[in-house]
Design a protein around this nucleic acid. Sequence first.
DNA 1: TTGTAAGCGTTATCAC
DNA 2: GTGATAACGCTTACAA
Lengths: 344, 344
Amino acid sequence: MKKTGRRNSGRPTITDVARLAGVAAITVSRALRDPSLVSVELRRQIEAAVAELGYEPNVNARALASSRADVIAVLVPSLTNIVFADFISGVYKALRGNPLQIQIGNTHYSPREEERLVAMFLGQRPSGLIVSGIDQSKATLKRLQTAGCPVVQVMEYADEPVDMLVGFSHFEGGKAATRHLVEAGYRRIGFIGARMDPRSQRRLAGYRLALEEAGLFDPALVVTTPTPSSVPLGGELLCQAMAKTPALDAVFCNNDDLALGVLFEAQRQAIRVPQALGICGFNDLDLMGVAHPRLTSVRTPRFETGHRAVQMVLRRLQGGAEEARCVDLGFQLQVRDSTMRDAP
Amino acid sequence: MKKTGRRNSGRPTITDVARLAGVAAITVSRALRDPSLVSVELRRQIEAAVAELGYEPNVNARALASSRADVIAVLVPSLTNIVFADFISGVYKALRGNPLQIQIGNTHYSPREEERLVAMFLGQRPSGLIVSGIDQSKATLKRLQTAGCPVVQVMEYADEPVDMLVGFSHFEGGKAATRHLVEAGYRRIGFIGARMDPRSQRRLAGYRLALEEAGLFDPALVVTTPTPSSVPLGGELLCQAMAKTPALDAVFCNNDDLALGVLFEAQRQAIRVPQALGICGFNDLDLMGVAHPRLTSVRTPRFETGHRAVQMVLRRLQGGAEEARCVDLGFQLQVRDSTMRDAP
DNA sequence: TTGTAAGCGTTATCAC
DNA sequence: GTGATAACGCTTACAA
């Protein structure tokens, strides 16, 4: 017979299981968390009782008692941006078979919203926290430093992370893409960028350095907008860039969506790619390899970053061997038709 | 002086705030949840104490005591599929300014995984539960029926939801798209489908009915694969379809990614679109309107569905006027160049 | 290996 | 309007 406390929720509790199995509640608790702590015999009885009652542990009570939620909080600036969707896929993949949950927060590229979410998430005492980028506000950084759980900054590379970091250098990525365009023979190489979040800014910085090194930089070549990126926007920005620089002969795009939009617009205007216009994207979504013509891009380790970030958290939680605090997963320039100016 | 219980976590608690403000803990609790329950004077003292201590309520304790977590759980089959990313954007949008959190679960299109996640999420006693589709397993349905919170099934339309439902009919969408192709003058209309989850199956059923009505159906026209959808896959499936039906003159694609892949492959093979091959996609991503040629598609209310689903949950929680349990947001056929066979 | 007691931080209940 | 007290369901600390 079940104790009918006034506030009883009706669902079976660990006490119910204990009573049915003829043991103490704490024994059920142990059997559930680490079966090796309980004798085989009791374990069986407990398992039977759990099954019979359809018992599910109350995660809130568990978190309250242990001051530790079985949750890894993940903060991203966007969910519709495929980059972060891929990243999160990697996060889930690394967590398969693990009792930990993922709690996703969407900062909408707002440092203030990020600050709010970090505070809120830390209030849940998560087992780990993964945040995007390295451009947190001072208040956020302070909270992260005293988070009391493993913290991983992702999608960038830097030397001094709050705790751990995994990603790659957007600056180097932008530089490599631009150098490639220079080496391919283009001379009026534009930069097209949307949203212009910190990572885009660093790609732009890399672009600029590469052009300056080649003596080809001109501010008029840069066309950016705070508007969120999209395929249609790519076409619009190309038009703007061509208006500013009629002799434009190539564009390095902030991301692949813009690059695709540029390609469509070029086709519409009957501009020959890559002869009259070279196009280079960023991220290397799988469509880049099958577009017509195939589009050059910079392959970025999105999925791998999510996977690795979770591994870093898990390893820390398990107290295993300390691995590198900073991991550079690199990027890879994928040269394809759209920048092969001299090809047949 | 703070009570230093052995297990004290170090963070300020509601009791600390109460002591500093010179009131009882329950008064602080009231002031935080509904200031109108507390006198102006005490309210001010409490606010000051909260600010001074940097107090953040412990959500776990709150959920335990009230048997209610301020969380809406959302289950989707995929996060990389832009359809669900857009849907989730709508969810977040509808929740702005609300203290409720979102907890996302990814079922990876697996009914078993869905079952596990539903059980786990309900163990948190969420304020609401949103699940994708209407094809839950029997065990899942049973749990949903006794969830003890508002439940919304989304992305489909049906008459008998577990609780509430918002979406549109994929069957009708597939039928409308196919009828359009028939009316546009195409005669050997293929179906290309990837993943083939329940919603894709219903689109296929609509396609089939439309072709049967026109006396044009032939099983050889249907090419599907359980492989996840992608742009490259669209090209491959087109090749397969043309191998089975050399006279193929149009394709209705499961989604826009495949349609784009089909377009690229057609361009590669120098097949003229729309004259020699009509292409129709599904979802109407924004790239469809700027592709070259522009691609016909079926616009689906992804964002709106997420937004509405949350509104339905919120309205139920607030005990407001009961709105319709089933909401059909419909779809819209967007006819563009890729199916204008007779255009100049 | 198992159990007892106390506590995690908050809110429901009932009294004033 | 405010407060004392007892839950909420689980785990830590300590004992046997």
